[in-house]
Design a protein around this nucleic acid. Structure first.
Lengths: 341, 341
DNA sequence: AATTAGCAGTCCGTGCGTTTGAGTGCTAAC
DNA sequence: GTTAGCACTCAAACGCACGGACTGCTAATT
């Protein structure tokens, strides 16, 4: 547990770093955040915070920059307090309430207003939950490959192909198919994303099925990401405005990642079970893009439609602002949807 | 008119510059393109080509780089010859023929394959021509503003607001409305984009309407761009791979422009009347984004659906490749659509 | 025991003069 | 009209020294 002063200092470093993007010196902290003790004291504290893994010193004669651990700490602090109010609130309100039209329009409007207000890239994923799985079929292509066909209320998806382990015969495939149908029929394809493989289902007797099941579920996940969701990204260019992407090649890589809609959908949707409210993924922590943080919130947009709204930015993100903006927006949406009923 | 040798030299400069992105020296040309005369001769030719506006010398001890005029010349040369064949042809074929599904899928597939093969940003604009204008209404908001409402078969668009000149009274508005309906009813909203204001319609008697009409038509154009088309962009990140965007701020600006779908739609659609076939817009020439060139081709995708396929890249673009890829793709599409009928 | 002032030490960034070399324009010869 | 040769220009690369931003440590202070 951190002492009160350490907390203050840590938050000061993060705040300052978020603002300036450059290493924070002990003197800066003393002058702008903690005038009641000397820079030497702060230096000592910084030193221990560094050894605790919260801070990083780029080189010996430089200040400190926060580690991802520090950002995580900072965000958790922020999430518990709820001083979320912004002056841009009216702007958001006006923009959204004015643009009330079809659901597509609202999605687009949301991405635009978020990107504009926060200056970060914004993402919205929409899932139509009304389309359910009717059947899963496994087709032995007799070349060692298995074609996974998913039939839903509205269409047939057959993108998945998996290698079949040698020892599988016709009967075993039929059996596996039976299991899969038992588990997944009636569910929405997007539910795979958060699906954890239930080892309990496959006891020793079926141990041999394990590998195949895993592969198939991976296919299902991929297919669901590709087909079950509507992804909109806006403000990619904002990413480049931040100094961590001064290097064009890094910038290009990040952009390429953001053009991969399936990847984005996965990040946005895989919220570790938080039903409603804000989620923050920082850096490598939870496979956010390299050096990035992703803030998301889930919203219900009607009986069968739900979505995730997200902001993608550098780990050094203005979380205070982003969190409050997302909070405001989901509040407005809840209100809008409520009125619609 | 350029001498045969000047043409050769000019094309050599452009070819080399497209490949290397750095100023081309007289010696290079001699060694790689024109070994039958000396570098001194070439230097003389380069000098005159520069004074003719085809070449630019960044500084006195550097080689020459092509001007936009040079690229235009180069492209026109290319367009008349038709040696369009690529090894990637099969890749494209496989990709597209395999992905034959709904029209949306094809659009997405096209952008992906183009971006992948050419390494430039790719754009597709689709217009559904079946939705026609039923009425145009002008609503005097009595605060000096006029709301332009466009009613189509399928919906009501009311995004447009224009300032009303002082001297307009109710009757004149009614008259203007009458005119607009006469001209535009039954047409598709996308037709505004290439619509040239027919001054003949408004003779001296109606001269006072001129200003208002112009404003309204601008609104119509904007609305049509926003509502009548489906725009997909893919491979924004490819833009950054080219050395003209080594500066992140420039890169950001270009990306911002490419996120403006209306702008993109306008560029792609406004093809100056070329019905079928390739169009090349170079730099400032025809309001392509700063420093960019846009290659487009129009395709018909069925009775009521037509579209434009485009590639956006730096002015120093590999036109040879891009032109051939677009050619190949539109050929495949024509074939696919033909089969569909 | 915690805090602080003071100081030596580290290392980044910057500015500056020099060198290098790529490429031209010009002149004179072919 | 073409070409060899040479003087000239100028951007880019290099090396170097200086300044200064910060720290860590030590010794004094509370």
């Amino acid at each position: 547990m951190l002492s009160e002063r350490k907390k203050k200092i840590l938050c000061a470093v993060v705040d300052s770093y978020i603002e300036t993007a450059s290493p924070v010196a002990s003197k800066d902290i003393q002058q702008e955040y903690l005038s009641d003790c000397s820079s030497a004291t702060i230096r000592n504290e910084l030193s221990t915070l560094e050894s605790m893994g919260y801070l990083i010193q780029p080189h010996v004669s430089a200040g400190r920059i926060p580690s991802e651990k520090a950002f995580r700490f900072y965000v958790n602090q922020l999430l518990t307090q709820s001083d979320v109010t912004v002056k841009e609130a009216e702007l958001i309100e006006n923009y959204l309430r004015h643009k009330v039209g079809s659901m597509e329009e609202v999605m687009t409007a949301i991405t635009h207003v978020i990107a504009e207000v926060t200056n970060y890239t914004s993402v919205v994923v929409k899932e139509d939950m009304s389309d359910r799985i009717t059947a899963i079929k496994l087709l032995d292509l007799s070349n060692g490959k298995l074609l996974v066909v998913i039939v839903t209320d509205s269409r047939v998806l057959k993108d998945g192909m998996v290698d079949l382990p040698d020892e599988f015969d016709e009967e075993m495939i039929a059996r596996a198919q039976h299991w899969l149908n038992k588990i997944f029929c009636g569910k929405h394809i997007s539910e795979f994303v958060n699906f954890n493989y239930p080892f309990a289902l496959v006891n020793d007797e079926f141990a041999q099925y394990n590998a195949l099941f895993k592969k198939i579920i991976d296919v299902l996940k991929r297919v669901s990401l590709m087909n079950g969701m509507d992804v909109e990204v806006y403000g990619e260019n904002k990413m480049l405005a931040h100094s961590e992407y001064a290097n064009v090649e890094d910038a290009r890589k990040i952009l390429a990642e953001m053009e991969n809609k399936e990847r984005i959908a996965e990040i946005l949707t895989n919220d570790g079970g938080v039903e409603n409210g804000l989620t923050v993924k920082i850096g490598a922590e939870e496979n956010a893009p390299e050096g990035c943080a992703v803030v998301t919130t889930r919203v219900h947009l009607g009986d069968n439609v739900s979505g995730s709204i997200g902001v993608i930015g550098p780990v050094r993100m203005n979380y205070r602002k982003v969190l409050s903006v997302l909070d405001k927006i989901s509040e407005i949406i809840i209100d809008l949807v409520g009125k619609g009923e």
